[in-house]
Amino acid sequence: MKRSIATWMHKRPQVRLAALLAAPTLWLVVAYLGALGALLVTAFFTIDSFTGNVIAKFNLGNFHDMLTDPAYRNVVLRTLGIAISVTLICAIFAIPMAFFMAKIAKPKNQKILVALVLTPLWASYLVKIYAWRTMLEPRTGVMDWILGPIGIHSPGFGGPAIIIGLSYLWLPYMILPIYAGLERLPNSLLDASGDLGARNFYTFRRVILPLIFPSLVAGSMFTFSLTLGDYITAQIIGGKLQMLGNVVYQNFSINLPFAATIATIPVAIMAIYLWLVRRTGALASL
């Protein structure tokens, strides 16, 4: 019986395909796209000013408020700036580290290094950010305590602190895909470039970078999108600054339609980002 079903299935690839696709597609479309769609629809609704209940009546008031108030343009630009900085910093740290791990370290040490890079992922997000509060506290923090004597001082709480904190949190998400990409490159390729007289930087720019570019993009998806939606780091070490996530979070509880309106911004940004990423062909290797 079992065998006959298997044979029957084997002869009908369409049925097998449908069986494979049904559950995941249903899940992603109903649970995820459905929820997302409902949220975007809510952006066009309004609330009863007395009870705070959502009223399902189409209007563009929220979009009007969002587009006419310069505060929201500021927070979008600020958040984008932070997301780009975090992505660049992570890339600058991650490329040499991943290169060392994959190509220079002895195979035995490779695993230890990977483990060392992965470990902080298990310490709670919040605890790490609070540790950065202790690190960055002006004058009395760890940073001034260690680096103060050589003239480097903490930037205090604000934009730079957010960038440092988020770069710290997302760095492993950038290192891992680049490491995986580099590991697949045959050593002979680098040797060949060196043998042909290319200097290290030239080899890096013309040989390695194009080959790991898809991995770099894959990593940037994490650093960029995680930064775009963050609101907790800004609360703890952001000083006076807020990010897009804070605005969404603030409005969510009392005025869902407006929160949904604000949420369309990161969705649009990520849609553009995905579109660009897709054009580079990196998505296929993601």
């Binding site: 995820y32 929820a35 409902a38 999108s225 939606g229 969510f252 990161p266 995905l274």
Partner: peptide
């Protein structure tokens, strides 16, 4: 579609699911 949940910010996924 499969990449979307991780590439859209968590706060968006969060409020979308909560609302749903």
């Amino acid at each position: 579609l499969v990449v979307l949940p991780i590439s859209l910010p968590g706060v968006v996924t969060g409020i979308a699911l909560s609302n749903a």
